[in-house]
Amino acid sequence: MAETTVLGLFEEIEQAASALNRLRGEGGKATEDLMVMSSVPFPEGVLESDKSPIRLTTVTAVFAFVGIAFGILLAGGTAQLYLIPGGGKPISPAPSIGIIAYEMMMLFALTAAFIAALYEMRLPSWRSKVYDTRISEGLIGIAAHCADEEQAEKAEQLCRDAGAADVRRDARAFE
């Protein structure tokens, strides 16, 4: 028996939490082999299966600076290449550069945050993966990645004991 995934579907948060804890404890599953799926988010820590660090804030900050640099070059730098004298003002005045740099900072930072978030979510990914359509109808899915049949059976049992509405095997990719 090759690798498989056991997917338990739960109606209540408390059942799902107990299944998650038991899979971790009695089932001996590592964090990366467990996955909570839900069509709504829960408050921090209610059902947690992912502990990977989130670096979005850092990315945003870095790209904010990139944006500032780009804005300065765009408004100040190119003005030195294509001279437009006028208005009793210098060719590259600080206030205009500041305004363009500010706009570019926002553009770069927010776009980078979005792209980085997708990257960290491992999206887009249109490949077929472990899922159940009932999750989008409000059930909470707890997926356990199992190496062999014995593990899978144990995981199924644990999910049923915790009160799962349904437990099934899914041979598709886990991540």
Partner: peptide, 28 residues
């Protein structure tokens, strides 16, 4: 939907992303 499954990994990122977007779109 880009292959969204609603995993904990995805929701956590989406929340942080919204945190950033919400704060930064106001000055925009």
């Amino acid at each position: 939907c880009l292959g969204w499954r609603g995993t904990d990994r995805e929701w956590r990122r989406l929340k942080v992303l919204f945190g950033i977007l919400t704060v930064m779109i106001i000055p925009v």
